[in-house]
């Protein structure tokens, strides 16, 4: 049975703590770029927590929203890549074949969510910080576009493990680095093709929305809207 990976972000649970951001840094060999580069918008994080203000003192409201690659089924980034570096994988992910990327940056322009990071320079690690690098994930070099992969290395290693044990993948057997770190369980990862998985259950919630859903990109990331007090009749 083929899988269709999806992520549910429960905005009612998200506290904006950004543990997911650092977890992603560690898992996916994402470099830090330093103050000067950060100042001109070249940070590399694959997931960010957007903060939106509404209203003013004394009644300001804040909304946090983690934004990562939405792994769209109708992805604007895929069609525009001249070399198939950005393409749709068999399991419905928006794949990014780093070695195939020639760096036209067209995908990043086409992405309505602005979730793609580009290696403007070769990333650097002050030794021995490089010893932390995850050997399961390649270290990208200059001129390559990168983005959230739904921790494809974890998917692959779980699939290989299941294959070795001659069984199907179990829901919750593995998860992405962001979801694993998320203390309030705002991020839930799983197989949308499995009707019994937690992610399927949550994705069919009445609070479910898609980010920029009106664009028709068919994201596989679902957001569950914040509720209000005494408005908790649906989970």
């Amino acid at each position: 049975m083929s899988h269709k990976w999806g992520l549910v972000v429960d905005l009612d649970r998200c506290t904006g703590c950004e543990a997911c951001v650092v977890a992603c840094h560690a898992e996916n060999n994402i470099p830090t770029v330093g103050k000067d580069q950060a100042a001109i918008g070249r940070t590399m994080q694959w997931i960010r927590v957007e903060r939106t203000w509404e209203g003013d003192f004394p009644n300001p409201k804040v909304r946090f929203q983690p934004v990562l690659c939405q792994q769209c089924d109708a992805a604007p980034c895929e069609a525009v890549c001249p070399t198939y570096a950005s393409y749709h994988t068999e399991e419905g992910l928006n794949g990014q074949a780093y070695n195939r990327c020639i760096g036209t940056r067209f995908c990043a322009n086409a992405c309505p969510y602005t979730v793609r990071s580009f290696n403007f320079y070769n990333p650097q690690w002050q030794k021995p910080l490089n010893l932390q690098l995850n050997p399961d994930v390649s270290v990208r070099s200059v001129g390559i576009m990168e983005k959230c992969t739904f921790c494809v290395q974890r998917i692959k290693s779980a699939e290989i493990q299941a294959e070795a044990e001659k069984r199907d993948l179990k829901d919750g057997e593995f998860t992405t680095a962001c979801a694993q770190s998320c203390a309030s369980k705002a991020l839930v990862f799983g197989d949308l093709n499995d009707p019994h998985s937690e992610v399927s259950r949550l994705a069919s919630s009445s609070r479910a929305t898609k980010l920029l859903g009106e664009l028709g990109t068919k994201p596989n990331v679902t957001y569950l809207e914040r509720g209000a007090w005494q408005d908790a009749n649906n989970g």
Binding site: P123, Q124, W125, Q126, P128, L129, N130, S141
Partner: peptide, 17 residues
């Protein structure tokens, strides 16, 4: 270039270059 460092800290930069 790499920041000046003393003998008791590590130095050097790792890059995929």
């Amino acid at each position: 270039g790499p920041t000046a460092s003393s003998q008791y800290v590590t130095s050097g930069v790792f890059t995929p270059a």
